[in-house]
Amino acid sequence: MSKKDVVVIDDDELTCMLMRRILEREFKFNIVSFKNGLEGLEYLENHNPDLVVLDLMLPGKNGFEILKNLRKREEFKNTKIILVSAKSNSSDIERGFDLSADEYVTKPFQQQEFVVRIKKLMRAS
């Protein structure tokens, strides 16, 4: 089975490193990460990963806008998108799911839980 591609867009370095670690160890994915929303979006113009992990509070373009943008495009209809954010109020979570995110993880999170959620998502594809 070919390696899956993952794009992580998060401006917090530590979170990026942690995600990388988890994804590489548990799943053996190909991981590309970006700190800036615009850079990430540019990359996604030409690449179609299997999973996108998206932070909401990003410099450049915020997570919701990127999510909207991706879902508008055909090739991203089946890509799994996880939203990660420190904001845990229900209106943000609701909005995330309204915009067709597949999962919403709030910071702080437990590593095991994160792994389980991703496993569930990837199994469904």
């Binding site: 530590l14 979170t15 942690l18 420190a86 910071k107 702080p108 999170f109 437990q110 590593q111 839980e113």
Partner: peptide
């Protein structure tokens, strides 16, 4: 500082 930043990302047993 580093550990404190990590406590903002990880919760539960990890924290």
């Amino acid at each position: 500082d580093l550990v404190d930043n990590m406590t903002e990302i990880l919760s539960g047993d990890d924290r």
